[in-house]
Nucleic acid binder design. Structure first.
Length: 310
DNA sequence: ACCGGTCCCTGTTAGC
DNA sequence: TGCTAACAGGGACCGG
């Protein structure tokens, strides 16, 4: 499932492979995949067709391609993507891939003059939790670049409420620690709340908490600054390592921009490993239902707090 | 303003 | 064998 490292892998690939390309045409095969676009599927096609893709930027799990060559009166805008659970952005060349159409192809951009020579940018999404839209760019309140890979101090409007992620050079870590400690909830809920900090999903939250030896239900307002720092450091580490390895793939749904699967799943310590030995102490990994999904912990390294918040 | 619960969607797998 | 139910999960949205 794409979390920050996987999305960053895709962003980096798009930056190299499609920056400068002109969108010659757009096909929407599944209206639901552009559901968050204001003008609907037809408006989406109108706003993307003829525009030049000016780069690739990211904050947390949101990814955007600023659109150049607009009419002078139009506001600055970007093609915005969220991959959801199963979304992929595939840069494809029919000379290599043929005209074979993926069964879950939802949106296809026809490209001209891509630096890679690619003809298509395909949005493929089996479970359709992902989506594309065109959104206006709004200035960042702090005047810093909008995200990773963004030279502009602006973000798409639907991203404006999302917190800076842990790999963002403009993130103020001390402010983030205080924001976490001010919350009255459990630490995992805080990690997954994208308005606090973005990019952390269920997998990396579990891995980070295991590394930091903190239980997911630990109340944020009982955590000392060093402990919060330890959790955030662990999350930064685990995502950085995953990024180096090209992102996680444990169910073969996720592939990077070139269609390659990542291999980080081999390095997961607890996530998805019910009953297997904790790599630190060999205690069997436990699974709890939490937020209508699974949380994996080592019951010995991460004992359940007495006054925890689920 | 903050917090927590619900729902959206589809393919795979487990179980009867 | 064939059906149903559970499961994966980010985030918009809503009610308290």
């Amino acid at each position: 499932m794409p979390e920050l490292p996987e999305v960053e892998t895709v962003r980096d690939g798009l930056d190299r492979l499609v920056t400068g390309a002109v969108v010659r045409d757009v096909e929407v095969f599944r209206d639901y995949s552009v559901r968050r676009h204001d003008g609907g599927p037809a408006g989406f096609v109108d706003q993307v067709r003829g525009r030049r893709l000016a780069g690739a930027a990211r904050r947390g799990k949101y990814l955007w391609l600023p659109l150049a060559d607009a009419a002078p009166a139009d506001p600055a805008a970007a093609l915005l993507a969220h991959l959801g659970m199963s979304g992929q952005l595939l840069v494809r060349d029919p000379a290599v891939a043929g005209e074979w159409a993926h069964p879950h192809l939802r949106v296809r951009l026809h490209l001209l003059d891509a630096p890679s020579g690619a003809h298509y940018l395909d949005f493929v999404d089996q479970r359709t939790f992902g989506h594309l839209s065109v959104a206006d760019l709004v200035p960042t309140p702090d005047g810093a670049p909008g995200g990773f890979g963004s030279p502009l101090a602006a973000v798409p409007e639907p991203v404006a409420h999302i917190g800076r992620d842990l790999l963002d050079p403009a993130l103020d870590r001390d402010v983030l620690v205080e924001r976490v400690r001010c919350r009255r909830t459990g630490i995992k809920r805080a990690l997954l709340d994208q308005t606090v900090t973005s990019g952390v999903g269920n997998i990396y939250a579990d891995e980070a908490l295991w590394r930091a030896r903190v239980h997911f239900a630990r109340a944020t307002d009982t955590m000392t600054r060093p402990v919060v720092h330890r959790v955030l450091d662990a999350a930064t580490e685990v995502m950085t390592e995953a990024l180096v390895q090209g992102g996680t793939s444990f169910d073969a749904l996720y592939v990077n921009v070139n269609g390659e699967s990542g291999y980080f799943s081999r390095s997961l310590a607890v996530y998805g490993r019910l009953g297997e030995a904790c790599p630190r102490c060999a205690t069997p990994v436990r699974r709890d239902e939490f937020m209508n999904r699974s949380s994996f912990t080592c019951p010995r390294c991460q004992p359940r707090p007495r006054n925890g918040r689920w």
